[in-house]
Design a binder for these strands. Structure first.
Lengths: 336, 336
DNA sequence: GTCAAAACATGAAACGTTACATGAAATATA
DNA sequence: TATATTTCATGTAACGTTTCATGTTTTGAC
């Protein structure tokens, strides 16, 4: 894949149109130029099929109009959705997006940050898991779901409120004793607030609960064990579950089915994130929905904001509860 | 987001080290330089925290080591997976990836191709839907799932074989009369081969079938209508379904449940793509699995291949059948 | 008809790199 | 020791833009 042909340059256009280099530059950039000149230059551009060379532009302007997105992968539906909406938000502002799938690898994360400093991108939006990530002072950076110090703005949903809403919802729907399930690998600190919120919600509604950490290695086995510990005569000792992610809820739901435990009749389940696998479809489970499009928009806004002083350290966006079939509720979707 | 500080340049390094500009360049690029010089230059680089400016490099070399991926979005799991694996394959070759979500918009698709010609990328990998897409002769392009003429290589899975396998599987599992469901918006031509393969498979196994096109606007309603037309005394007139995508199968499965039709007892269902929503989980349905990692690798290989002559017009990669609970089969997953 | 002022095209310099021709120093040959 | 040869740092010329000081032309005023 070698580019051995040489594209026409401004010089070629200038020669073709019989004008000076600077005049062509002005026409290309929409600056005022005499009409007779403009017409000739435009004709020459069309004739030669001229396109500006953006390296040269970048070299002069020290700007690429390119932003890097650091994200573990695009397969997880939550990351996939974020990626898409950030891409759209950047396009709207005429920025390009470099996708950097880090695979949760701190080494790769750091490598991409270095890349940004090599002027390959103007800024970075990052959902990273490297607690020691070093970000240069003059490289604009916006973090998602993870505070990285006072200098770096962080965009997150209101994780605390989400947990609280989940607890209150479960209580309001008749639950007496709930289980809070989370996975072990919560390296990011923001989602821990979900737990705090859930606890606060339980407290305010008088809902008792217990917490269980499911190891990422084999959450299935761990959850099976958890169930067998809490089952007696075919009845579970808890009647509500809050899973810290929809992903986990998805696992849990399968296992509950395997145990012939009915959802939501025997136990109600609420997840977190608001994943809908095939676009406009229903939610996998009742869930706390993160406002992904808003978060994306906010990340881009903050990153491109010129005034460094106007960058708040943490932007918290509101979450909503959505019914997804795993809670008792007026089944508003069934009659569609 | 302005970059107002000025990073150190090779000139600065040269001055600091007391050597010539060219010497610094050589050190940076790992070319042979006398040891005493190398040491001094390396020290200066560290001291000034020098990073090469890649615009300048790009301007000289006319290469960005960046590839654009044109894809409708990253939310659809199939696209999401393709995006991820292409990203990984490009990284392995030390290329960067510009993500361009086109939203099925031919105008945007064309715009991105233009961008590539502006030297912003070295080549394009595209899963596009614009039948009139104009691609410049000297812009390397690899198409996915869509033949775009003899000059442009296309990477696809063996759609024909996939359809055939699906038909044969249904027949082998006892189906007598099948339904072939596809969505209306199959603008790409490659997936049409799935139908041809299915027909061939039906023929060879003596399986009768009928075809139904479900409009993308409201596939649910259309399928409901289809079912009511084919149901008598609570019994369907067909006992096997082949859906042209897992996405469609996902819809269909929900509707079948709503109609209280048991899967796979009453009707068996096979999809296409091999989607697994949460990473390593089970398939949504029994399905024909596209070898996405291989396809990604192949796209990158073809794109970066220097020898234009060695680019075949169509690379067809093998598919496999995977059990996903919607067909009658030794239930190998249940005892896990 | 002359002069001042405004309007606007011009072309050189600079951005940071790489490549190449140059020349100086070190080594080998006679 | 003098010359031929190699080695290798040097510095300049591109790469294709943008910007800005310069110079030319046109317009308007007296």
């Amino acid at each position: 894949m070698k580019k051995d042909f040489s594209a026409p340059t401004m010089k070629d256009v200038a020669r073709e149109a019989g004008v000076a280099l600077g005049t062509v530059s002005k026409v290309v950039n929409g600056l005022p130029v005499g009409d007779s000149y403009r017409i000739r230059v435009e004709a020459a551009i069309r004739k030669l099929n001229y396109q500006v060379n953006s390296y040269a532009q970048g070299l002069k302007a020290n700007r690429t109009y390119t932003v890097a997105l650091l994200i573990p992968n695009t397969i997880d539906p939550f990351y996939a959705s974020l990626t898409y909406y950030i891409n759209v938000a950047l396009m709207k502002k005429r920025y390009r997006m470099l996708l950097c799938a880090t695979d949760y690898d701190p080494r790769q994360e750091q490598e991409y940050v270095m890349m940004a400093q090599q002027n390959k991108v103007d800024g970075i939006i990052g959902l990273t898991y490297n607690p020691h990530l070093i970000v240069d002072e003059n490289t604009p950076f916006v973090a998602i779901d993870r505070s990285m110090g006072p200098k770096i703005p962080c965009v997150a949903c209101d994780n605390f409120a989400g947990g609280q809403i989940a607890a209150e919802k479960l209580a309001d729907l008749g639950c007496k004793h709930a289980a809070f399930l989370r996975s072990g690998s919560a390296l990011s600190n923001e989602p821990n607030k979900r737990k705090a919120g859930f606890e606060a919600g339980c407290l305010s509604r008088g809902l008792s609960y217990e917490m269980k950490i499911l190891n990422d290695g084999d959450p299935i086995e761990e959850f099976e064990h958890f169930i067998s510990e809490h089952i007696q005569d075919g009845k579970l000792s808890f009647d509500g579950i809050f899973c810290v992610t929809d992903r986990l809820a998805y696992h849990v739901l399968h296992i509950l089915h395997r145990f012939q435990i009915r959802v939501p009749e025997d136990v109600q389940l609420i997840g977190f994130d608001g994943i809908r696998t095939f676009g406009s479809m229903d939610y996998h489970c009742s869930t706390i929905v993160q406002p992904v499009p808003d978060m994306a928009e906010m990340c881009v806004d903050l990153l491109l904001r010129e005034n460094t002083m106007a960058k708040p350290p943490l932007v918290c966006l509101p979450v909503t509860y959505a019914y997804g079939g795993t809670t008792l509720e007026e089944d508003i979707h069934a009659d569609r």
